[in-house]
Lab assay of single mutants.
Amino acid sequence: MDSLVVLVLCLSCLLLLSLWRQSSGRGKLPPGPTPLPVIGNILQIGIKDISKSLTNLSKVYGPVFTLYFGLKPIVVLHGYEAVKEALIDLGEEFSGRGIFPLAERANRGFGIVFSNGKKWKEIRRFSLMTLRNFGMGKRSIEDRVQEEARCLVEELRKTKASPCDPTFILGCAPCNVICSIIFHKRFDYKDQQFLNLMEKLNENIKILSSPWIQICNNFSPIIDYFPGTHNKLLKNVAFMKSYILEKVKEHQESMDMNNPQDFIDCFLMKMEKEKHNQPSEFTIESLENTAVDLFGAGTETTSTTLRYALLLLLKHPEVTAKVQEEIERVIGRNRSPCMQDRSHMPYTDAVVHEVQRYIDLLPTSLPHAVTCDIKFRNYLIPKGTTILISLTSVLHDNKEFPNPEMFDPHHFLDEGGNFKKSKYFMPFSAGKRICVGEALAGMELFLFLTSILQNFNLKSLVDPKNLDTTPVVNGFASVPPFYQLCFIPV
């Protein structure tokens, strides 16, 4: 009986604490739906499609509103004006990374994606500088992407125009580009180590996009005490870190300090320079996690976009025909596509942009946080508050993009057929937390897609009208449904 009384008292205290925290903070924060004790607004949000729920709530509470995930307040920004004001106009104040408990377990605050403060700034600055020195957006990395595009075309030829699921092959190409940047090595598509790495990356994007992960991140005790797919994700990350550590040891034994070959060499050189400046942010643990982040951000996002792009091109054969006509006119058949071609191919450029806009790969991006107490639109948001960005509300804005739910390359073309930029184009987020590999991803999408369409016609196994382009999961990332196609050599 005594234990029951204690339990009831504990629960009562928890409920009172929950109510007090919510009521004391709500006077400062933007308005929002009334949260339930302990669980907050979790029942009012469709976990399978958070973005749709945010759109519905914005119609009631406006472009800036507050939700509670458990006891934790989260300020939501919906629509271009609110997102721009926060991420661009007040970029420094909104540059923090929001709480992501599962990532905390995986990387302990290291790396480039989930770190904060001085650690994040130094690692991000170093990573950007190193990638630029190796030619991100310049010639040397373009050579690597072109080489991988040629290998991709050869792998597709091996399908002999038979029906195939493109998931694996389209994942190999961007993964190999990242391998060449980090390890100075590309792998054969049949290499077992490479296959294991690909498998872990593919599993992780599916797990991260599941409703279960949303629950884990908002009720963090689940991570330590409950079984579930989150444990598989943590094991996959541990596998990748151990693999990278092996490569780091190989580099330490063979590195030429006067001739760095890749990202690992550059990081080890930085560690050597910083060894007298303790404590340094440049450690082996930081290198492991930064490399894992580059793999995660640079492989599955690009391969998922490529997979979605081919599905949309199957669905819209008239678009595919126009792209192939432009390829034939500008590039021809006797040389590989290059980035200089893009400025002469406005329709193809528009298609690449429209694919990214339409699929809305990361509907709410990753959570941000404010780095200080900030007054925002007459609300006071306390330091450390998590900020949720609705990228969907920007990419699918119906004023900027008429009929935003329709796939239409003319969203990025003017009346004369010239490519038209849009400030609403934010597939990689915006501001200080914009994806480090934005330029690389854009290069890969253009070169891989043009190389495929230069060499193959795409054949659907069903009537294009019957192809479903609805994402199968739409949590962290929008993942396309399973499909097969035939690559018919031109």
Rank of each mutant, 00 (worst) to 15 (best):
Q484L: 05
R186C: 01
Q192E: 14
V462Q: 10
R139M: 11
I207A: 07
S58E: 10
L197D: 02
Q214L: 11
V352A: 06
Q484E: 14
F134N: 11
L11N: 04
D349K: 15
T371N: 13
R186N: 01
N56T: 13
V83S: 07
K72T: 10
K375T: 10
K48T: 12
G27K: 13
P37I: 04
L131H: 05
E250L: 06
R105C: 07
L197P: 00
F376A: 06
N258F: 07
L90R: 15
S343G: 12
D191H: 03
F376S: 04
I213G: 15
F448R: 01
A149H: 00
F412P: 00
L388G: 03
S451R: 04
R97G: 03
C216F: 14
L361M: 09
Q44S: 12
Q44V: 06
Y80K: 13
Q192P: 15
P464Q: 04
I47P: 14
W120D: 07
D468A: 10
G296C: 04
A350E: 00
V237S: 07
E354K: 00
F407R: 00
F219Y: 10
K432W: 05
S23C: 14
I205S: 05
Q193V: 13
L362R: 04
R433D: 00
P73D: 01
L311S: 01
Q324Y: 05
R335W: 02
Y483M: 02
Y243V: 15
E272S: 13
D191R: 01
T34P: 13
L17P: 13
F446C: 00
P163L: 05
K59S: 12
L391M: 13
C151Q: 09
E326N: 01
V8M: 13
I452L: 04
L458S: 00
G137Y: 07
C179Y: 03
S140V: 09
Q484G: 03
K119Q: 15
T34R: 14
K273V: 08
P260D: 07
V83Y: 07
R144E: 05
L458Q: 00
V83N: 05
Q146P: 00
C216T: 15
E354G: 01
T290M: 10
D191V: 01
L152Q: 01
T301A: 06
I331R: 01
Q146S: 09
F226V: 12
E203T: 07
D349C: 15
A238K: 14
F407G: 00
V237K: 03
L395R: 00
V351G: 01
V490Q: 13
R125L: 05
K52H: 10
K375H: 10
N398D: 13
V319P: 03
E300L: 15
L67N: 00
G117I: 03
Q454G: 05
Y68T: 04
F226R: 04
K59Y: 10
K273Y: 08
G40Y: 03
S242Y: 05
M426I: 12
Q22C: 13
R342Y: 04
V76D: 01
F482R: 15
I123A: 15
V76P: 00
E81L: 06
I42C: 12
K158F: 04
L287S: 01
M443V: 12
M136P: 10
L447D: 02
D468E: 10
H410I: 07
E328A: 15
K399M: 10
F282V: 05
V323E: 01
I50F: 13
L170G: 01
P427T: 07
L54D: 03
F412I: 00
P481N: 04
L287I: 05
E104S: 12
I45S: 06
K48Q: 11
E81S: 11
P404Q: 08
S24A: 13
W212R: 08
A86I: 06
L453A: 03
L485F: 01
V8L: 10
G442P: 10
L152G: 00
E154M: 07
K432I: 05
G40T: 03
D224R: 15
G228S: 09
D468G: 06
L445K: 03
L453Y: 03
K160Q: 11
F110S: 10
L131K: 03
G32M: 00
F456H: 01
L306G: 01
L43R: 07
F476D: 01
T301S: 05
H78D: 06
E328P: 02
S127A: 09
I452G: 01
L131E: 04
T55V: 14
L71G: 12
R307F: 02
E400R: 08
R329M: 12
F94H: 03
K119W: 04
P402H: 11
V355I: 13
P346L: 03
L440Q: 01
L361C: 07
T283Y: 05
M136F: 10
L234R: 13
V394C: 13
D49T: 06
K235V: 05
I389T: 11
Y68S: 06
G109M: 06
L67Y: 06
K235T: 08
A161Q: 12
L361D: 03
L391Q: 10
I50H: 09
P31V: 06
K421L: 09
I215E: 04
I374A: 07
E326T: 00
M257F: 14
T470G: 08
M129R: 13
L29C: 03
I374E: 02
Y483Q: 01
K421P: 14
G40Q: 02
E250S: 07
P221L: 08
P402R: 13
Q44K: 11
K399A: 12
L7P: 10
L388N: 03
R105E: 11
V6A: 13
N259V: 08
P464T: 07
T386L: 08
L77N: 01
F446M: 02
G40C: 01
P101I: 07
L449S: 05
R97F: 01
F126E: 06
P260N: 08
V83F: 07
L170V: 04
I45T: 10
V237A: 09
F219W: 11
E147G: 04
E203C: 04
V177A: 01
F487P: 00
Y189F: 00
P227E: 07
L461R: 05
D397A: 10
G475C: 07
I123Y: 06
E253I: 15
S220V: 13
G46S: 13
G475F: 09
M426T: 11
F425S: 10
C372D: 13
T159Y: 11
F226S: 05
Y68D: 03
G384C: 03
T159S: 06
P31L: 06
N196C: 11
R186A: 02
F456C: 01
N334C: 13
I45N: 05
F194C: 03
L77S: 01
Q278D: 11
P363L: 00
A369D: 12
T392S: 14
L9V: 14
N116E: 11
E288M: 13
Y379C: 05
H410V: 09
M198I: 06
F263R: 01
K206C: 05
E253Y: 09
R139L: 12
N466R: 11
L453N: 02
D89V: 09
M339T: 07
D373E: 06
N455P: 00
A291F: 15
W120V: 06
G475V: 06
K138L: 11
F412C: 01
I359P: 00
P363I: 01
Q324E: 05
Y379D: 02
L9P: 13
R433H: 10
V6P: 12
T167S: 11
I244M: 10
D373H: 04
Y379R: 05
N218H: 10
I88F: 09
V6W: 13
Q356P: 02
G384N: 09
F487Q: 00
T302V: 10
I359R: 04
F94K: 02
R97D: 00
S365D: 05
C164G: 01
V8H: 07
V351L: 09
S429P: 00
N466Y: 10
I331K: 02
H276C: 10
S303F: 01
L77C: 07
F407C: 00
A291T: 07
E199Y: 10
F183L: 06
P409T: 02
D188I: 02
P489D: 03
I42M: 14
V153C: 06
T290H: 04
Y379H: 10
K84I: 06
L445A: 10
C486F: 03
I215T: 07
L152E: 01
F110I: 12
I452M: 04
V330R: 11
H276I: 09
Q146N: 06
S303T: 06
